[in-house]
Design a protein around this nucleic acid. Structure first.
Lengths: 155, 155
DNA sequence: CCATTCTTTGACTAATGTTGACTAACATTA
DNA sequence: TAATGTTAGTCAACATTAGTCAAAGAATGG
């Protein structure tokens, strides 16, 4: 079932630590050595198995004393709303549609008036001032999806 | 726990003093000796961790009796925080400095934790995913200034 | 058996930290 | 005032981590 491949084994290892602790902090090369894989495989495991959809937050730092930290977070009840809205966004979105999504979030009490205002500023044409409107639409979609993903959990 | 590298440890040391006092005045070589690093590492720590974006002012003097003085500034007391921070941003800004500014806004009770989190998402590299990093830095400055300006209204 | 998806690998890139040689500013003393 | 000593500042080389990406290999489903 599980544990067929090394990625699954590493996943289980990390999750066994996360069963007791709210977070786990690793040195990438150490875990890679422990399981005798190349360091980038750790990135693969994290990218495929410790996503925000699964309730995990990942942060890292490079350089001396660098680390990768995985944190377990509480997903909120608004998941369905958020999933629906994210699926609506697609690869690009114009300002009008973006604002209507933000309005929906406010109507559904997912965000406050002030948060809605900040988000609206963020997706406005004026803020995303780029010469290429297509690029701006793509970027706006990026921004919105990032924000919605952030709303999935609370810290 | 963080602070695996010596720069983090020195940062924590200085901040522990600043927790009680409005300022800390050091002799560079003494701190360098204390932590067994070269003197210029102290400059590195200050340059990366005690910037105005972080709410600190640094002044120093060379020659006999020289010193480095780090002061915690209360941006709210002085002038308008927002104006101060906006003037600091300039034409472009990297993610690190942007996050420092957002952190300062939170420290100064201008924004809530959640608003800070959302703003951090907005200025993150991942969100502002552009091929050209320079363009991303310019856009980030634009975004931050737009957000700060929005914080002026209502309240 | 083929096509598709998932996993593994490593070369290259990026970010951050550490070090030391050299420079600049200031103070003291001759 | 000039010379010397005592500090801090700058900068570039080097060191130490993690991230990206695409190609190759393995597993899976039809």
């Amino acid at each position: 079932m599980e544990g067929q491949n090394i990625s699954d084994i590493i996943e289980q290892y990390l999750k066994s630590i996360l069963a007791d602790s709210e977070h786990v902090e690793i040195r990438r090369s150490e875990i890679a050595d422990l399981f005798d894989v190349v360091p980038s495989q750790i990135n693969y495991v994290i990218k495929t198995r410790f996503t925000i959809q699964n309730g995990y937050l990942v942060e890292s730092k490079r350089g001396g004393g660098g680390y990768i930290r995985i944190e377990r977070v509480n997903l909120l009840d608004d998941i369905d709303v958020l999933n629906t809205l994210i699926s609506v966004i697609g690869d690009d979105i114009n300002e009008r549609d973006a604002v209507s999504i933000i309005q929906t979030l406010y109507d559904e009490d997912v965000i406050s008036r002030r948060e809605a205002d900040l988000m609206a500023v963020m997706v406005s044409k004026q803020t995303l001032a780029l010469t290429d409107r297509q690029v701006a639409d793509v970027l706006r979609a990026h921004v919105l999806i990032s924000l919605l993903n952030r709303l999935r959990y609370e810290s």
